[in-house]
Design a protein around this nucleic acid. Structure first.
Lengths: 341, 341
DNA sequence: AGCATTATTCAAAACGCTTTGGGCGTGGCA
DNA sequence: TGCCACGCCCAAAGCGTTTTGAATAATGCT
């Protein structure tokens, strides 16, 4: 059932039917009623392909996964992030279109997406501190929103980010308040912008008490269980080991817990731990008393904001790029306690 | 730069240019050469929207996330699964189009996707034992491939599945060989087809030694860390507790490990554990000696197979539906050991 | 009554590609 | 020489919408 057939049955021109369904004003109320009823009755849905060609919009928003590192291609937040994006973009009639690419080929893919007219906008994930994808997307005039920020990019662009700096500053201060002073940071890959900000927040928090953390108390790398385990195990064998850890993810925190237990220590007693919690749906830290004390910020929620801003930007490309800084909440769980003397 | 402009510059008709780039035979080799060079030079990419309208294909394959349960919407394997799908579908020129929907609205979405012509085929995840989505997709003549199977559906359909039954049978036998007889199964939600098969495999494995497991040794539910912890904690307090556990996922196995450690026991010594390992990229169980003994089967690889079969089916819709049964490998890790007497 | 509006509808163009149905040389064969 | 086949290329017809530019009918105003 297509427009021509439907309008044929109604004895109307396709123009009128199209307008009636599109909600345009220049159509009689009675006619519109008749048309919408017929559309429902015959199950008419405008063909998306034809609509796309006629309007010049694809009603797709794009997300490009790049396999810079085979293991990293899928990061743990991917699922919740796209779920959030899709949730609100779908409500505006957009679907999310996924593409993968080889390392360094992202620019090619972005250009192709543009010249093919395959997507109307793009969501950008995991920006580096100096991310050239942003300039590229500006160049080719592709609407986009970044999940996170790129410290060294000065031109304005739309982004949604968690206040990572503040979150990690608060985490440090929370531990300091409990009497801890030897606090370690097990961070994500510090080429990533968010990791850099977390580090600087941590350092700033420590500095408020005049403490400069021992360089041996820093670790940076992929946020896996194994890396969390390795980093914490290693630091626990230092002659002066940390009494508290700040972990950049719940997954590495799970590795940390394993290391702590293997060392014969207990979380929340001899060792305190705060994790950053992305509030992933399959890795919940929302028990009555959460397993981990955490700075929590829902990545799914970030996805929702991003989709909304992107949809706005697509329909109004000349508007100022919107930004949104989300604050993380500090939730107290079972993994922290006062310093044992 | 569009086809008309390109052909104008070349002094050729758009027909010829289109055919030259499309690889059709009725074009002179020298001309084809000239055309392809010009296409590269001017960065011409055929407009996907126009192409879709002209060919009647969208070059999209669809994946519908249904929020039957807010927490379940994103399951842990989602990321790796779609990465696998996208990897090979992308190579054939298809991108993956994601949609979310409310519980029970999947049928509506499938029909819409069909009548809109938004996708050329669909990948179906997490089938129930009696899944009516399969009949629906047949009805509306939408090519599809199922990740998993639906036991009660008798009509042929394309699927890719792990031999869950065999895997869990082997897991049970492996533990039996180590002397364990009190073995528990902490399974996924047994309304899901894969969970049912795992259970039956486990039961069959035990039956080869004439053992019928205590009903108290069964648990079924969402495969979260917390559920794994709860189930194992509970069973460890039974008057006759299990000496070994089979866990349906690495995530619940992590919860199990926590429970075991809290009970003052050690994995691989007093308690043995085998997990099903989907080989998720962010939750690797691939250390030199894997943390968990596991039946492993890459969900990403399954995604690749699914995409290939779906692409085949789209281009040849009348062919017999293809099936592929993947075998899991049994990898020995640190979490199993002989029964302690 | 006559003219200017306004409300409602329609025919046709446009979107940018693929594909159909020829057309025009050129070479081979009788 | 005449005819057919083939190689190569093109004009034009879709594909199913949206949107433009007019036409027609109805209404309001003087």
């Amino acid at each position: 059932m297509n427009l021509k057939e439907l309008s044929g049955r109604l004895g109307l021109s396709s123009t009128t039917v199209s307008r009636a369904l599109g909600g345009y004003p220049e159509v009689n109320a009675a006619t519109r009623q008749r048309v919408t009823e017929a559309a429902v009755k015959f199950g008419y849905q405008p063909n998306k392909r034809a609509r796309a060609l006629a309007t010049g919009r694809s009603f797709n928003i794009g997300h490009v996964l790049s396999a810079s590192n085979k293991d990293q291609l899928v990061n743990p937040i991917f699922g919740d992030f796209v779920a959030g994006v899709t949730e609100v973009s779908g409500a505006s009639g957009y679907s999310l279109s996924l593409t993968v690419t080889d390392p360094g080929q992202e620019a090619v893919v972005f250009r192709r997406l543009k010249s093919e007219g395959a997507v109307d906008g793009i969501v950008l994930q995991a920006p580096l501190m100096d991310d050239d994808r942003i300039a590229l997307l500006h160049d080719i005039e592709m609407p986009f929103v970044v999940h996170g920020r790129a410290t060294h990019v000065t031109d304005p662009y739309a982004w949604v980010d968690v206040n990572n700096k503040r979150a990690f500053e608060r985490a440090a201060q929370f531990l300091l308040d409990l009497g801890h002073e030897r606090i370690a940071l097990v961070n994500g890959d510090e080429a990533m912008d968010f990791a850099y900000r977390r580090r600087s927040g941590f350092v700033a928090g420590m500095a408020t008490r005049g403490i400069i953390p021992d360089p041996a108390y820093f670790s940076s790398g992929e946020m896996t269980e194994a890396n969390g385990y390795d980093a914490v195990s290693r630091m626990l064998t230092l002659t002066v080991p940390p009494t508290a850890f700040i972990m950049s993810s719940v997954i590495s925190a799970i590795g940390a817990r394993r290391a702590v237990q293997e060392a014969g220590l207990t979380l929340g007693r001899e060792i305190s731990l705060i994790a950053h919690d992305d509030d992933l749906s399959y890795l919940s830290n929302r028990q009555t008393v959460p397993m981990f004390t955490a700075v929590r910020s829902s990545v799914r929620d970030a996805g929702r904001h991003i989709a909304q801003i992107l949809v706005d930007q697509i329909s109004n490309p000349t508007a100022e790029p919107e930004n949104k800084l989300l604050e993380a909440e500090l939730v107290v769980g079972a993994s922290t306690g006062p310093l044992q003397r």
